[in-house]
Amino acid sequence: MKAANAIQVKNLTKTFGEFTAVNNISFHVGKGEVFGFLGANGAGKTTAMKMLIGILKPTSGKAQVANYDITSHANDVKKNIGYMSQRFSLYNDLTIKENITFFGGIYGLKKATIKTKTQALINDLGLHDEANKLVGSLPLGWKQKVAFSVSLLHDPQIIFLDEPTGGVDPITRRQFWEMIYREAHKGKTIFVTTHYMDEAEYCDRVSIMVEGKIEALDSPKNLKTQYKVDSMNQVFLKLARNIE
């Protein structure tokens, strides 16, 4: 397997009893790439992602994330990736500062490092007035921006984002993507799921999962040419359920 790839997946499969959630998928994600991982609800995205972040063992197949095998070196995978999801990312009953300290501690950062990182994060996001407020009192968009920054605290090479912008207002949603771009520009690899098809257009490459399999994988531009349509939304509708 090439070291240049941030993620390398080969014949990855996961079954639950009779049901095959992820069916023999293979793909790679290059270093510094913004990779969109799309699919309908129930297509197997979450199961695949759980295996890649080292919290679910595959039934068969292999994958390397940040050069670590997800089965034999799951803990090394966890140390070298960042993760945030729409459902859970920060503790609502802790302040922004407390959340940063908490997650910094979990990632094993030194006290002095946590202090500098906290200051930098608050400066970057312009949250001086909110730093001591409970996260629960913040608008969702701010929460998600803080959560993304927190997922970067331990300087991971790859960041997994599971529907990070669901329900977020349109302006903040765009600011969030600017943050994503900025990190990719610094060489970080981004692995992101979304239901907003305009966001699919912002990815370098996109895969579309249908019933456990990867049905398409290419740049948004090539996918649109291949399916003879002019938006990713139409590509998705065509592939995911054969709707014209």
Partner: peptide, 12 residues
């Protein structure tokens, strides 16, 4: 919000 978190096909 009947369609929040729902994929584009099911939303349609």
């Amino acid at each position: 919000e009947p369609t929040t978190g729902v994929d584009p096909v099911s939303r349609k």
